[in-house]
Amino acid sequence: MGTNPVPNKKLAIFTATGCRACENAILDIHYQVSSLARCADIAFWPYMLGSEVRDLEKQESIDVCFFAGAIRTSSDREAALKLREKSRIMVACGACAAFGGMPGLVNISQWSVVSGQSQRTMDNKQQTNEEEKPELPPLESRVLGLPQIVKVDYLVPGCPPTQNFLWAAIQSLVCNGQSPARLSFAASRLPEAIAQAITSGILPPKGSIFAGEKAVCASCSRVKEEKRFETYKRPYQAYEELGRCLLEQGLVCQGITTQEGCGGLCTAMGQPCRGCFGKAEAIFDPGAKMVSAISSTFDSNDAQEIAALVDDIVDLVGTFYRYTLPTQCALFSTPSKD
């Protein structure tokens, strides 16, 4: 074993249907990238190493797999099943893998529409470019999050996951046992339950979410008052009174339903929360909670005025369930694999 008492972990990183920003986020841990290379052997990473799914057969086993992206096509499903089979720890990394993400919004359309359109695109491509026709694997009937098809050990939410959480997750799962200083650093950034597990040298309980316990409002720096609004605004229409709660300014800010952990990054910059950490634990359905929160700020007792206000608010499903439709919407979600 030589100088290093702990053998290096074998790491796999993969994106199914997604934009690969999660993989970029893993690279975005600055100088720590080099320490990652010291404590892990990256066995499978198509984005960086050009590995292919069929190469996985050659791997005996993988210690930790960071799986990003939603399950959209049959090849996504195959890759997820194969990686689950090979990996000791499976981490759903990013909102798409953890909750279904933005690709999951397609579930509000009827399946026939979705498949019909993709079939048409395929036909067009075949006509125009017979030589190199791209092959789209068969689509799943609906977009799913990773926990809905395989058992997932940990979730790292975010779109993409924030740098400090991601690095803390990597350290606690991949680099554990390497350096006490590094572990205590990671623990200082993680929620208490996870931090306690890591500092005592064990893995956090299965199913842990690497995010805070409360809602984003708990860590948002803005001032909350009892204020009501008469008009609803889109984010580009309002950027004033920096210190005041965005919801009270008439913006649809989802901090109230969203799990804490980002530290209120967007709200600090005047952008309403978009909900990329998924719903906070105490919330049954994020959409219903937002309906309740927004309507309580309407400053009117008149049914017609209220109806006019509601008319201004567009695309409720796409806003309230922007990242979570397949897994956290009461009417659309399907159960997870235990």
Partner: peptide, 10 residues
Amino acid sequence: MRRAPLLRKL
């Protein structure tokens, strides 16, 4: 009454 129209829309 304030809640109903938005909920109905959702």
